[in-house]
């Protein structure tokens, strides 16, 4: 029986396939999370995996994130390869002790004698009407901690390849998955493959401005670039993919080419991805190539509102990206 080499899968299906292939390939891999077993996960990512791999490898945890995360860190230290799912990324606040003070530091504090091959998955972002405690984009928090790797795959292809790379990785990798991406479809090879952590990708080549975006904002930036191309503005869109470690070379090369930079991200604007990328460029050789102020488009300085109109207004939307980039290119900023 020959499976087609490349099929169209949703982002959620691509995750499930990656998890299954990882468990097939390595008996040390197992899954933990709230309602990921019989219920199939809050976003149906694990689906029927419990029936295929059993309750020992697809493990429902109590609603006690700190304790469960401690179990995952301990399992990783003992030689397992746990993949831990938070039901919502917001709930990771309960588990920060295990993530920040334990998982991130143990390898360094024990002189490299052990590592923590832990993968944690964070359903993140707004747009589902889930209000302030279920809609945040907290990736910058964890990207601030040395010892963690933080990735934000934006396509079904990337999530499968990067999740497999994360499970291979000897160190803790935090995977932020935008909830609105789960249903997004894209071509995904059936075979296991890896997409390297720490490498950005140019999704659209252009000469007029470099737009660095993460997660769902990559798609909004691409839509914006399409609209702007009709106005003679040729935008380059870079999908950052990894927030830590940042692929500075790709961004510097792009800004040296275009002379302009916009950062688009859903996390709160202040002290977020855009602050880091802007400062990095200002410190780099690309500074001398800037021909306009740097633009940051990030989330509002407020909790995500429940009201759907306000919820939409609180994070960058395609038309806002179009308007601000147009202002910059036409010399109004």
């Amino acid at each position: 029986m020959n499976a087609p080499a490349i099929r169209e899968l949703s982002y959620a299906q691509a995750i499930q396939e990656a998890l299954a292939q990882a468990m097939d390939a390595d008996p040390r891999v197992f899954l933990m999370g709230e309602d990921i077993g019989v219920y199939g996960g809050a976003f149906q990512v694990t689906g029927d995996l419990v029936h295929r791999y059993g309750e020992d490898r697809v493990m429902d945890t109590p609603i006690a994130e700190l304790g469960a995360a401690g179990v995952a860190v301990g399992a990783a230290l003992a030689g397992c390869r746990p993949v831990f799912e938070f039901q919502f990324s917001d709930f990771s606040a309960l588990a920060l002790e295990q993530i920040v003070n334990q998982a991130a530091k143990i390898r360094f504090m024990l002189g490299g004698k052990v590592s923590v091959p832990l993968v944690m998955r964070f359903p993140a972002g707004s747009g589902t009407g889930a209000a302030a405690q279920h809609s945040q984009s907290l990736e910058a928090w964890l990207a601030h901690v040395p010892g963690l790797k933080v990735i934000q795959p934006s396509t079904p292809y990337d999530i499968k390849g990067m999740l497999l790379a994360a499970i291979d990785d000897p160190d803790p990798v935090m995977v932020f998955e935008h909830k609105l991406l789960y249903k997004m479809k894209g071509d995904v090879p059936a075979e296991p493959y890896r997409v390297p952590i720490g490498k950005a990708i140019v999704r659209r080549a252009g000469t007029g401005i470099s737009i660095v975006a993460t997660s769902i904002m990559v798609h909004r930036a691409l839509e914006a670039a399409e609209i702007l191309s009709g106005e003679g503005i040729d935008a380059e869109v870079i999908d950052l993919r990894t927030l830590r470690p940042i692929d500075t070379a790709t961004i510097i090369a792009s800004v040296k080419k275009t002379g302009r930079l916009a950062c688009v991200y859903e996390g709160v604007k202040t002290l977020g991805m855009g602050a880091e990328i802007s400062a990095m460029i200002a410190e780099s050789e690309a500074f001398d190539y800037l021909d306009a102020p740097i633009l940051r488009l990030g989330g509002a300085e407020a909790p995500i509102p429940y009201n759907p109109v306000l919820e939409k207004a609180s994070v960058p939307q395609t038309e806002v990206i179009v308007a601000r980039v147009r202002d910059l290119l036409q010399g109004r900023i």
Binding site: G259, F287, D288, Y289, L290, D291, A292
Partner: peptide, 9 residues
């Protein structure tokens, strides 16, 4: 004069 870094360069 006000100028961008690229213009100065």
């Amino acid at each position: 004069p006000r100028a961008t870094p690229l213009a100065r360069r």
